[in-house]
Design a protein around this nucleic acid. Structure first.
Lengths: 343, 343
DNA sequence: TGTTAGCACTCAATACAAGTGAGTGCTAAC
DNA sequence: GTTAGCACTCACTTGTATTGAGTGCTAACA
């Protein structure tokens, strides 16, 4: 168990290291007003903290640096529930001031603003299209063989699909189909469209659409919903200007993960609330010197997406967590107002 | 004027430097079979070449390295019109083997494959949507205030726009509008839609659509065509693994330009054929150690897009130029077959 | 006259030694 | 329990020497 003094020292070491990126030594610590002890005393405490694994040395006679365990403890117990600053509030609000219509636009802006404010990289997932509900479907014939299916969801997302018709259909026939589809599938979650197609629509088609089997087959084949959600980035290169990444190899790996890696899967699995992954807690090797803070946002009580900030392990946790909490709350509130209450 | 021997030496210096990334000295040159002269002779020739500005030293007693002028001469005069290798042909063909329907899909694949083959970064512009012609327009009402306009072009590009109606329109009215629009605007280049709207459509609306002025205003406001074309990337991070970029500052600038810079403008202005920009010929400071090779592709005899390869100035020009020539030709041919002949 | 051998010279890169400073652990005194 | 003192460690810097690849120049050669 840690004594109060050890907690103080640990906190100050971490705060100091986060802001300076320099190992912190006993002498510089003892100069701080909060610590009225001599370097020697602090050295003793630091030795204990090191033994317990909260801090470590970069070499045998260096100052101390927080270990992952130290950061973890810091995030879990020492973090003052810092209120976010007034100027930050102002900046964040700009996102909500613009006309909020297309969700993806909002989300893209969020990523940009968060990255600008933190100087880290922002990754925003969602809105999770497969959780959306069908609002409207339309099929536009182009020529004898091809048509475009347009699907609009309740969150304003628009999805196009080219579809291929076996034979020429006259437009009256297609219109009939479309109105049946709309009638039967409106409000259905996109994930379930496939199953509903045969269940609900099949019978009606049977009666009213010629060659119904072929048409149904076509719809089932082409009308699948993309399983991958969209990922929006802000400040992809911000992380390159963090002094923590001065090794060219690291930078390469990092950029590769950001560009091509499956950050989506990593981030999407955090469900609800604020979540912090520190260093090797990220299983991806390239992210072993990074931390990822995630927060979810929702419409009503349903989570529809995730916001993440990717920075070095030496991240300004207090500020980032504060920002994300504030922002995800407001975003959820705005979206809920927009998409639920309005109707 | 350069003697034949100087040309040989220049060519070999550049070839050698491109493949090894090491300054090449007189001794190593004289060992090559193509150059049956002693180091001393070569030194004399190199001194001349340097005086003329084709090669330079990294420091006073180093081997020689091609200058930009050297590369330029090499690209313009020395480049053997190298045929592309059989295995490369095979790989490139895979792009054309898939079902070619959506142009953007093809273009995205092209970028990926070219980047994989070259280990440089591929940037593919287009298809230039504003040159496309309208094939079909559709307006789907969503609720009283909003609707989705879907525009399909002759190259299979699909564009969505949310539009905002002033008042509730009944669907019959909208259908009438849409059929007028289709009738009058089909085949019109997207750039001209705006002007045609008032010219051609205006009068007809006047007779047949109620509140035609308001509707026309809405269409003019919301139905603009995005001026920026899509840019597709392949191997964004490839360039990071080029040994030429071992300086962290350079890497940062480079990634920033790739992520956020206006590569579009830089590349789009190259019209027709193969074009090579070497080093400081790229006005962007961050690209002063890079070369960009561009090629255009077309449907029929109309250029619709550009392919570019971004690499270090020490680029394998012969190979890249060969690849791009071959690829852009085939791409143009395939697209022409697909979109012109088929109709 | 063009080519080559020889030589002195330059410079990046590497290795090594010495000095400095920030930091540590330990012990003994307060 | 706290602190002063001291010996020790190690990264970092500075200076010096060595090496090797390469050059320019000159004189000799074919």
């Amino acid at each position: 168990m840690l004594t109060q003094r050890q907690l103080n020292i640990l906190q100050i070491i971490i705060d100091d290291f986060i802001s300076t990126n320099e190992p912190v030594g006993s002498r510089s610590l003892s100069k701080k007003a909060e610590i009225p002890y001599s370097p020697a005393t602090i050295r003793n405490e630091m030795a204990d903290l090191e033994e317990m694994g909260y801090i470590e040395k970069t070499h045998i006679s260096s100052g101390r640096v927080p270990s992952e365990k130290g950061y973890r403890y810091y995030v879990d117990h020492l973090l003052a529930p810092q209120n976010i600053q007034q100027e930050d509030v102002q900046k964040l609000k700009t996102v909500f001031e613009e006309r909020l219509i297309e969700l993806e636009q909002i989300v893209q802006n969020s990523a940009r603003i968060l990255s600008e404010m933190t100087n880290y990289t922002a990754i925003v997932l969602g809105p999770a299209v497969h959780d959306n509900h069908l609002r409207k479907i339309q099929i536009m014939p182009l020529d004898k063989k091809t048509a475009v299916a347009v699907i609009v969801t309740d969150t304003g997302h628009i999805e196009n699909k080219m579809i291929y018709l076996q034979d020429g259909y006259d437009s009256a026939e297609i219109e009939k189909m479309v109105s049946i589809l709309n009638e039967r599938l409106q409000g259905v979650p996109l994930t379930q469209i496939h199953s509903k197609l045969r269940q609900e629509v099949g019978n009606i088609f049977k009666e009213r659409v010629q060659d119904y089997d072929q048409v149904l087959g076509m719809l089932e084949r082409d009308l699948y919903v993309p399983s991958k959600e969209k990922v929006f980035y802000g400040g992809k290169t911000n992380i390159l200007s963090q002094p923590d990444f001065n090794d060219i190899g690291k930078i390469r790996m990092l950029m590769q993960v950001i560009e091509e890696g499956n950050l989506y899967e990593m981030i999407a699995k955090n469900k609800g609330g604020i979540n912090v992954k520190i260093g090797t807690e990220n299983e991806n090797l390239a992210l072993n010197d990074c931390s990822i803070v995630t927060a979810t946002y929702s419409i009503g009580d349903q989570n529809i997406g995730t916001i993440a900030i990717l920075g070095p392990t030496r991240m300004e946790y207090a500020r980032v967590i504060g920002l994300l909490k504030y922002f995800s709350n407001h975003l959820s509130k705005s979206l809920t107002d927009l998409y639920l209450e309005e109707r």
